[in-house]
Every structure is written in structure tokens, then in C-alpha cells.
């Protein structure tokens, strides 16, 4: 398998605060990469750099052999990069169907009947079809998270970036979500998933990366990364529970 995403020497700082420093990694097409790290490690910033919402100070991002470092978020979406936001950002005055159709019509470049079908399929996969005509502003948290995923799916992505999609869900709600993400990965979509709920992450990902203070602390086999002394030290004092990881 060829790498679909290559990140080389990526850096970003806000004044004196470093949120990414010389971050380099590659992701194979069709694989899933998990990202863990303490709060403020620069995980969400990294996703914003990959989607182009934030410009990088230095470094390069190559997607499918094409340098995308300088191109707009809209253009990156058309190439096949989709993202779900940690704090859901629904289009509140549009219906659920219209929200998802935006993804199909722009990022997925399929409008009219083909776009409606893509939209309905994304709604079906995420279980939102019965809520199609509800204004997105009326959705509760779980449905807002599903909407994030449905919109990303509707762009027919090749790479999907999930930002704490499981955060705030109950234990009962987790297994179907995990299955859904596994299903995505198995259908050939490359997944990069930031998550604090480590056992959910380990059920899906092929590789794990730990970020701290904007730097890559460890990257490789998920179990090995979780066992590495540096990673354990970063998590010391936090509520991380090693028992959950197995």
C-alpha cells in the first residue's frame, strides 16, 4: 500500500505557544491512525493544518502524491479530505438533510439526484434518516456528532479526520460507533482519529501516535506506544487507565 498522507516537518505556533513542532508521519492508504495526547498537545491543530483551516508556518503536507500545503480547505475537501469537528458545528438554520447535502454537493461534487442519493446513504449509515427534515439547530449532542460524521461521509472522502467523535457518548453508544468507523476503514477510507477514550481507539486503529507539546512523542504499534515510558509519563497524574487499553 502506498502512503496517502505524508506530513513532513510541520510547524505552527501562535505567538510563543507552540502547537506543532516538526511533526512528521505518513499514513498508508486504507489504514487507521489513532492520535492520543494530553489536552493542549496540538491534536486538533494538527487536523486543522491537514484540512487547511489553519495555514502551516513550515513543513509540507502531501496528499496522494500532491503537495496540498498551500491550497484552500475547499480544494482539499474536493480532493477527498473530510473532517468531523470536536465541538459539532452544524449549519443550525438548515435541515439535517441540507447539512449533509452541502458535503455531497461541494466536497463530493455530486449534486442533483446523485447528490441526494449520496446524502440519503450517509444519513442511513449514521442513523439520521428519520431526522432528515429537522433543523440541525434542534439536534441533541449525539445526533450532532452523527451529523458531523454524515456530512464528512457525504463528501465521499478518501481520508477522514475524526476529532473526538466518541467524546461525551455513553458506554452503550460506543460499540455501534466503533463498528461504523471499522466499516469505513474496511471499505477503503483512510482514518485519522483523535480520541481520549483509548479502548475505543485501540479497537480500530492500526497505528497510534502520541502528541505532547506539539511534538510526536511516540508513533507505531498501538500496544507498544501505550506501553512506552514517555507516553505513560505524559499521562501520569491524568485520569488515564491502562486497564482499559487491553
Amino acid at each position: 500500500m502506498a502512503p496517502i498522507l505524508e506530513v513532513a516537518g510541520l510547524s505552527k505556533r501562535f505567538g510563543k505557544v507552540i502547537t506543532a513542532e516538526d511533526v512528521s508521519f505518513t499514513v498508508e492508504e486504507g489504514s487507521a491512525l489513532g492520535i492520543v495526547g494530553p489536552n493542549g498537545a496540538g491534536k486538533s491543530t494538527l487536523l486543522s493544518l491537514i484540512t487547511g483551516v489553519l495555514p502551516a508556518d513550515a513543513g509540507a503536507i502531501v496528499f496522494d502524491g500532491k503537495d496540498i500545503t498551500k491550497i484552500s480547505p475547499g480544494a482539499r475537501s474536493e480532493l477527498g479530505i473530510a473532517r468531523s469537528f470536536q465541538i459539532p458545528r452544524p449549519f443550525v438554520d438548515m435541515t439535517v438533510f441540507e447539512n449533509v447535502y452541502v458535503g455531497a454537493a461541494f466536497g463530493g461534487d455530486s449534486h442533483g439526484q446523485a447528490g441526494y442519493d449520496t446524502t440519503a446513504e450517509a444519513l442511513e449509515i449514521t442513523g439520521l434518516l428519520p431526522l432528515s427534515d429537522v433543523p440541525a439547530g434542534q439536534l441533541r449532542l449525539l445526533d450532532r456528532k452523527r451529523l458531523e460524521l454524515a456530512r464528512a461521509l457525504a463528501t465521499s472522502p478518501r481520508l477522514i479526520l475524526l476529532d473526538e467523535i466518541a467524546g461525551g457518548l455513553t458506554e452503550k453508544e460506543l460499540p455501534p460507533l466503533i463498528e461504523m468507523i471499522k466499516g469505513l476503514r474496511d471499505s477503503g477510507v483512510t482514518v485519522i482519529w483523535i480520541e481520549h477514550i483509548v479502548h475505543a481507539l485501540l479497537a480500530v486503529v492500526d497505528e497510534l501516535m502520541c502528541l505532547a507539546f506539539g511534538k510526536v512523542l511516540a508513533l507505531g504499534d498501538p500496544q507498544e506506544v501505550m506501553r512506552s515510558p514517555e507516553v505513560i509519563e505524559v499521562y501520569l497524574g491524568s485520569t488515564f487507565d491502562m486497564g482499559e487499553a487491553s
Partner: peptide, 18 residues
């Protein structure tokens, strides 16, 4: 459709290809 999305949330709209 794109305008309406931009009005509601321009960051999310750009991430979806608008």
C-alpha cells in the same frame, strides 16, 4: 446552498468543500 452554509458556519462550510 453554499451561501446558507457559509452564513451558518464558514469554517465548517470550507471543510465540506465550499
Amino acid at each position: 446552498l453554499g451561501f446558507t452554509a457559509i452564513r451558518d458556519d464558514s469554517v465548517a462550510a470550507s471543510s465540506l468543500g465550499v
